[in-house]
């Protein structure tokens, strides 16, 4: 397929996805929440640091959840149209990648509703820009997870259950398992296992990175093991890396699933 043909296919899919996302209810609710969060940060946060914490909580819970739901909805929303859609001269991988970038772009725009009011609450531009870019990366990882769950499942209900279960596992499940397993003496001798589990989970990587950055805790304070010390010293870099790996791997998985679809 020529580059020109690829471009107009990508443009068409991208535009369609933008239109679908704008009229998607999850996205509309998220936009309202982002605006409310931004205004609340402006009105109620006592200082710039508190604004950062407030945004961190919104990002951790709402951005991850709604980007996940938007991904699921995007994958499942037109499932019945696949026989028509996939009989078009369109690479299935291009279709999934365009979906991902459209969702990512629109989430990036809506996040401004959350971050711009915070700027007027006194937070510094540098700290907000860092938090914004990290929140964007978090959204990218969860949009990709939503797409993967959406293309993996047979129907919308199964996709939602899978996606929300994955989100809960990443939000609290891994931490709880680590907490209980840490009582086992054999595992206490290898704390790197727990550190690695937390490092590989984008929600934990985001949480740790943002908290250490906001609290301005020196890296040495948490450096009980060499791995933990390295992680905290490179928390921002590591989070960027792990979020991109998750986003890339899950988008690849989603397109592989769609390629297998026959019907």
């Amino acid at each position: 397929m020529s580059l020109r043909s690829d471009m107009h296919v990508s443009r068409a899919v991208f535009r369609r996805e933008l239109r679908s996302v704008v009229i998607n209810r999850y996205f509309q609710v998220f936009s309202a929440l982002a605006l409310l969060g931004g205004v609340a940060a402006l009105l109620f946060a006592e200082d710039a640091n508190a604004t950062g914490f407030f945004i961190l909580q919104v990002a951790l819970y709402f951005v991850s959840l709604f980007s996940l739901l938007a991904g699921v909805s995007s994958a499942q929303g037109e499932r019945e149209e696949w026989p028509l859609l996939l009989s078009q001269p369109l690479r299935r991988r291009t279709f999934v990648i365009c979906k991902f970038f459209a969702l990512f772009s629109i989430f990036g725009s809506v996040l401004l509703l959350l971050f711009v009011p915070a700027f007027f609450a006194g937070a510094t531009l540098a700290s907000l820009a860092l938090l914004f870019s990290q929140t964007l990366l978090l959204a990218a990882a969860f949009v990709a997870l939503g797409l993967a769950c959406g293309f993996l499942a047979r129907d919308r209900a199964q996709a939602l259950i899978t996606a929300v279960s994955a989100w809960l596992l990443m939000l609290v499940g891994i931490d709880l398992v680590a907490l209980f397993a840490a009582r086992w003496p054999v595992l206490q001798r290898v704390p790197e296992i727990w550190t690695a589990c937390l490092m590989l989970n984008p929600l934990d990587a985001f949480r740790i990175e943002a908290l250490f950055a906001l609290q301005q805790i020196p890296a040495e304070a948490a450096g009980t093991t060499p791995l933990a010390a390295w992680w905290i010293a490179h928390a921002a870099l590591w989070f960027g890396f792990i979020a991109l790996v998750w986003a890339g791997a899950l988008t690849h998985f989603a397109s592989a699933r769609l390629k297998q679809w026959e019907g």
């Binding site: 107009h8 443009r11 369609r16 679908s20 019945e80 028509l84 009989s87 078009q88 369109l90």
Partner: peptide, 28 residues
Amino acid sequence: LSYLPQSPSFHARLTGGELLRFYGQLRG
């Protein structure tokens, strides 16, 4: 080729015009 499936289903929230314009862009 152009294919019309047995019971064509479309994205429920898009209008007929949006749908046709999308497929039109896709096929150039």
